[in-house]
Design a protein around this nucleic acid. Structure first.
Lengths: 226, 226
DNA sequence: CAGGATCCACTATTGGATCCCG
DNA sequence: CGGGATCCAATAGTGGATCCTG
């Protein structure tokens, strides 16, 4: 299949996989050229750009929504930076709505909606290769198995309980076997509201997001290619 | 039981455990005083001294032999530095006789003879506490369970094969889940003979020893106190 | 700001080097 | 030296901070 910008969302998983197949083996530079987008050579100046380019070629239609990228298929798109066979970074899943987290069951959570079905697009992450020359790999269409699902839910529920009790300051990146909580903001000064725990008060704290640890995504890679 | 220097080897496991009980809770300084031994305040100047003191109080009789410390009982004595509930260091098991390793089955190895039954004496390893004030903990009389035994044997056999093939330079501290190989010498300049692999020749290389990784001894601690 | 992510300072771990005693 | 071990520089890994786009 020829590499081209998607004009419409994919109508089926097969169509999505066909589009993903047309991207596999291509470099970020090739996609940027076709999309008429300028890309910096240094990753530092282009965090997230490869993922946004991919959206255009695969036909993601959710925009900046708390919904899966492919709404019709219920599939989320994630790039996965891989170096020497292992994920180089954690994977951002979603921001945390601190004010609502305590009232939301895992089944109804943004985390679960984003992770129940994911199209992983591996991308080379060798620091010695400049961004335009980094290539995409073969797509992996994944859903959590029972174990993975249980791990995710346990991690989620532990965090939800702490937020509900107002013990935000006990939430650090150390929590969670697979799903971890880390700051998520343009810079450290940003503040947002969170439950205060006792009574209906609130407190101000930094915005946070859910991330998948590299060890967890490594397991996904291994199963896919083993 | 009163703390006192042992005049004879322990006649039974119970006697050994009774002596160990008399040491539990005592400080290195107390033992040194009774043994009329001078000890430096800094651990750096006294590596191994706590273990040697213990031998005197428990009645170890093997001296500097490749045999268990308590010959009659077939029990090896090991101190285990513990800080915040975890072993702070790896545990030295034995030197490696490179010239003989390839011909020796695990069952007949020094490693197995030393590890098939061990009296672990935990000792405080808080860096902020000077050596004389560090205290011994409650003894753990341990034998490997089937899993542990299998892990040790697998690690041993992998090393033995590399030595036999003369691929000494492929042996690094990275090998081994539980049992690891590391340099063991007064300084880096020491050299000894090892098989060269092809034919009956030999090569010169640094002396090495077997060590247990902290993760393995952590498991022993956890089972004993859980 | 929310969504796409990676950066990089710091911490934890590792494992090669070293220290004391008899 | 062999047996008793720990030291500590270097590396791997973690997780708080940050960067770009629309």
């Amino acid at each position: 299949m020829t590499l081209s910008l998607a004009k419409t969302p994919p109508a089926s998983e097969d169509e999505l996989l066909a589009r993903a197949g047309s991207v596999a083996g291509r470099s970020v530079g090739e996609l940027a050229m076709k999309a008429q987008v300028r890309i910096p050579k240094q990753m530092r100046r282009a965090k997230g750009l490869a993922g946004q380019l991919l959206e255009q070629f695969l036909g993601a239609d959710a925009g900046s929504k708390a919904e899966p990228d492919f709404r019709g298929l219920g599939i989320e798109l994630k790039t996965l930076p891989v170096h020497e066979g292992r994920p180089k970074e954690s994977t951002f899943v979603s921001t945390i709505e601190l004010d609502r987290l305590g009232d939301t069951d895992f089944e109804d959570s943004v985390v679960w909606h984003k992770l129940r079905r994911v199209l992983w697009m591996p991308i080379e992450a060798d620091p010695s290769v400049e961004l335009p020359h980094r290539r995409f790999g073969a797509a992996i269409l994944w859903s959590p198995d029972d174990d993975q699902r249980r791990t995710l839910q346990d991690d989620y529920e532990r965090v939800a309980e702490l937020v509900l009790r107002g013990r935000i300051d006990e939430i650090t990146g150390h929590l969670g076997d697979a799903l971890q909580v880390r700051p998520k903001a343009a810079h450290g000064g940003v503040r947002e509201r969170a439950p205060e725990g006792i009574g209906g008060g609130y407190q101000w704290t930094g915005p946070r997001g859910f991330y998948l640890r590299p060890g967890f995504t490594a397991g996904i890679l291994e199963r896919a290619f083993r």
